[in-house]
């Protein structure tokens, strides 16, 4: 189905809050598909995307699937390069310890590097 002759680095920048649109879910689904096809993956929470990582989410009340365990899900698919942009957290007054999850905190300069070393970037 997929011509896997070469392994590429694909970066996903998830920039939207979790439930107002399905872009956060789509970004996740696409990254998981890339993981299944054994690509090198970077997953970056940027801008409003960092809001996906807040603790104590419960989307049952709005009949949505809670995105609570997004980083665990990424981990289960072998995606280890999970990054959170510090500037995006600061702009939203979110502290690193508000996020109970194993991620690497980066600044925008590092994001530029990650983009630079990627073959393709999905910016959702």
């Amino acid at each position: 189905m997929i011509n896997n002759s070469h392994r590429q680095t694909i970066t996903f920048i998830s920039r939207t809050p979790p439930y107002g649109s399905d872009r956060a879910q789509l970004c996740l689904d696409t990254a998981l598909a890339a993981a299944v096809f054994d690509q090198e993956i970077n997953y970056v929470f940027y801008s409003d995307g960092v809001l996906q990582l807040l603790n104590n989410q419960n989307a049952d009340a709005i009949d949505c699937k809670t995105l609570r365990n997004i980083t665990e899900t990424l981990g289960l698919y072998g995606i280890k390069n999970i990054f959170v942009d510090r500037g995006s957290l600061q702009q939203r007054d979110i502290h690193e310890d508000d996020l109970a999850t194993a991620v690497q905190f980066i600044d925008a300069e590092r994001l530029a590097e990650i983009i630079d070393k990627s073959h393709a970037v999905f910016n959702l």
Binding site: I2, A33, A34, F37, N123
Partner: peptide, 17 residues
């Protein structure tokens, strides 16, 4: 499925969204 999107990302010189 999404596999075809990943295949496109991997095997194209440029992916434009």
């Amino acid at each position: 499925g999404l596999g075809q999107l990943i295949d496109a990302a991997v095997n194209s010189d440029r992916l434009v969204n």
